[in-house]
Design a protein around this nucleic acid. Structure first.
Lengths: 203, 203
DNA sequence: CTTGTTTTTTACCATTTGGTAAAGCAACCC
DNA sequence: GGGTTGCTTTACCAAATGGTAAAAAACAAG
């Protein structure tokens, strides 16, 4: 039976996870070392292994936590709301996440680019059902004439791609743009998806 | 003075680079080992170090080569052509590259996600001038009323994001879609960018 | 203040990994 | 066929890295 963690345990586990997020998102799983994480956390390496069973344990803990919050914006897509506004709000939430949580986005990107070796089951179990459900919802909206007809799956892919791009490819964007400009991105993406999705005037 | 490489040198360097592309794109720089590359190339590790100065040498050689072909589709954007059709053709070329060269796309993605530690100068020197030039071109088209007015920089970002997504996040897409479907992606992206960019009817 | 428990440190270890030295083998040149 | 050059293998090495054992320190409860 697991006893409740003490104050100090909570604090140190959090420090380690935050340090792990820094290091894993910046260097990938193999590029990260326990020493880096220990340094970033301000703890010794063996001390870290007192709180976690190993490097992989830290990583999968981070990925699991990530999965939770990562799906929230999509979950919040409301079947009762106005379809176009719901989808644009979804885009906005995703831009906000890329701005607020770029490390999480890159952690995820690192994992997926390399074939999701530690996350495949999570995708299948958590992401896929939600994805299918929301695709069906969008398709229903489209068939009711409330949105322009496009492939819902590709629609969602394009929302993910465009929004996460600003976090995942920040190094490239920093070279090409003079100013960081998430607001410009949000405005551009709203224009793009509005023009794509606005229902055909048909009365 | 560098003497011309022999048949056998050309062949083995090519084998090593191809193996390196496999391994680096699948595991990232730190996740790749010389042993993996040696195995994939069918050569011994010291033999590989006879042809390259080290792991990093293989990696930067790949990145340099990549930069060449990677910019071609954007270079081919023709100032003389029809603006809308030129941009849609650019999207198509990028989709084709994601389909034909997913390893290259992931190699690039790995490098950028981790902050472009070995590629920053290349981006600055090769990508930025071309990017600026083409943005100016697109802006000129827009001001001439030949395209809808949107931020050209974000436009290009969204083209990159949506097309490369199919290669970089293939592991995720494979989970969510039943069939690999680059053609569906191409059709969807054409619809999306056409609706975004079609010039306002104003005669 | 003493005792039992939790946390941290010190000192290691085995494996992996990038890389080297040098010998052996092959190929070409005369 | 002998020698020079180019290619490959064998046998290593030093550093880095994930992880462990056990002592020491800090802490909590009585």
């Amino acid at each position: 039976m697991p006893k409740k963690p003490s104050r100090i345990q909570q604090r140190n586990r959090k420090k380690i996870l935050d340090a792990g997020l820094d290091v894993f998102s910046a260097h990938g799983y193999r590029g990260a070392t326990l020493d880096m994480i220990a340094d970033a956390a301000g703890l010794s390496k063996p001390n870290i292994l007192y709180y976690f069973n190993g490097k992989e344990d830290i990583h999968v803990t981070l990925l699991s936590q990530l999965m939770e919050t990562w799906l929230d914006p999509l979950r919040a897509l409301d079947p009762q709301g106005d379809p176009l506004e719901e989808l644009l709000a979804y885009v906005r939430r995703k831009v906000d996440m890329a701005r607020e949580y770029p490390r999480e986005s890159r952690l995820f990107a690192n994992e997926i680019v390399q074939g999701a070796p530690r996350m495949g089951p999570h995708l299948e179990a958590d992401l896929k059902p939600l994805f299918d459900e929301k695709c069906a919802q969008i398709r229903a909206w489209m068939e009711a004439g409330l949105l322009a007809q496009v492939d819902p799956q590709h629609l969602i892919f394009s929302i993910w791609a465009t929004t996460q791009h600003y976090a995942d490819f920040e190094a490239q964007i920093r070279v090409l743009r003079t100013q960081d400009d998430f607001d410009g991105a949000a405005a551009y993406l709203e224009t793009m998806f509005r023009s794509l999705l606005s229902p055909p005037a048909k009365d």
